[in-house]
Write a protein that binds this DNA or RNA. Structure first.
Lengths: 229, 229
DNA sequence: GCAAAAGTGTTCACTTTACACCCATGT
DNA sequence: ACATGGGTGTAAAGTGAACACTTTTGC
């Protein structure tokens, strides 16, 4: 190595906003800090980037270590670089957001840092560092992006009902949606494959289950199709 | 400071994709490198982030030092963190894109690094580092974002004709646009203020000049209006 | 007078919205 | 039998797309 430490360097971290959907309620996973600074405060899972791992790898590692989740949808969000965002020293943080399906992954975040808990995304406690700002940015991104990319499915189980999907969109778009129009539009896209299964153990007529057809989406995208809701 | 250099740290840089519009041709400013690595190759303006400046400040400083432009539209794009992206050592780069109006700012980039030149955005030479990837991402962002945010005006002079605006959109959307429909739509938004001036020194009927009314846009946005083209 | 771009409306197809009732199931 | 959500079609309004000619100006 050459030229290193000639000048002082910022430290580099990743922070992850992990979203889950619980019965039509959008949740975020937070971790209660054990160490200074902000000991005892809630914070996003995250940590230092190692010198030989990519940013994506660091984010996945932190999600695995601190939140106990693997193989989830993950996307870089924004890099936060205010000079005073960490009281110890200059720390620049690359923020990610991740989407997990709470039906398959446990609601208890099995982890070493077991002080993890899910909070409603718009009712979080006071957060450490600038994590409130990161969370706000992640919510904005999620709520914007579900409209033009089919990422909402990452929050649902593999097989889901049209009502579950509709509720998800109602949460993200922050407005009620007409049931018939929603079904017409989403089925008309041809991205949902009907399964031969139906909802189980419900105290009313059981709904048909659908899958998102990712291969079909890729095909259509190549032909110029754009997802839009 | 505490805990510093306990572990090796990545270096942190910013890189800027500066776009300009020249007669309906989208251009990017590149700098010919003087130093190793990649000496002689073309690269994006950029450099190391100082420990006491924010990322935005670093990006603006580099644009000023290397490209000779100030007070331009600037937005963070993405952070590139591949382990091998710099052959010297681990360097993470926060990429920005900026939009400048070439009519007011000089086409010659007056600068210390005077080996700067404008290239057509889709006919660039081979670039240093992963700058080709950064440029691709910036183009994708620009071409996507002009549709739903009125950022295109940053590429035009303060007063412009509707045809100039249409050409800009034709470049970004990569398809011809019907003149009458375009004018109907853009004027119908109420974001353009007619000036009492007309185009000068053209060998045909002179077009009326318009301004983008940023205040009006802010007002409308608060009332739920969304820009869309 | 001709070349070159400015400016201007209408029609048709399609998309979006609004809206209400019966059905299947479990308790 | 009743409570709960599942599932379905139509009409009216609004939006997007296609399209051609006259006007102004400089040379």
């Amino acid at each position: 190595m050459q030229n290193i430490y000639k000048h002082p360097r910022a430290a580099l971290t990743v922070d992850c906003v992990l979203f889950g959907l619980d019965e039509g309620d959008l949740k975020v996973l937070l971790i209660q800090r054990k160490l200074k600074p902000f000991a005892g405060k809630w914070a996003l899972p995250g940590g230092f980037v190692r010198v030989n791992e990519t940013l994506d790898e660091a984010a996945r590692r932190e999600l695995s270590e601190e939140a106990g989740v693997r193989d989830v949808f993950l996307e870089q969000l924004y890099t936060f670089g205010d000079v005073e965002r960490d009281p110890r020293e200059r720390v620049v943080s690359v923020a990610y957001y991740a989407l997990v399906n709470l039906a398959d992954h446990p609601l208890k975040a099995a982890t070493d840092a077991s002080d993890a808990a899910w909070f409603s995304a718009d009712e979080v406690p006071s957060l450490a560092f600038d994590h409130a700002e990161i969370l706000t940015a992640a919510l904005r991104r999620l709520k914007g992006k579900v409209r033009y990319e089919p990422i909402g499915f990452e929050l649902l189980p593999e097989k889901f009902t049209l009502s579950q999907l509709q509720h998800l969109y109602e949460v993200c778009l922050e407005e009620p949606i007409d049931k018939r129009n929603f079904r017409k539009k989403i089925l008309g896209m041809g991205l949902l494959a009907e399964t031969d299964e139906i909802q189980q153990d419900v105290a009313h007529r059981a709904a048909r289950l659908y899958r998102f057809d990712a291969k079909r989406y890729e095909q259509l995208k190549k032909r110029g199709f754009s997802f839009w809701l």
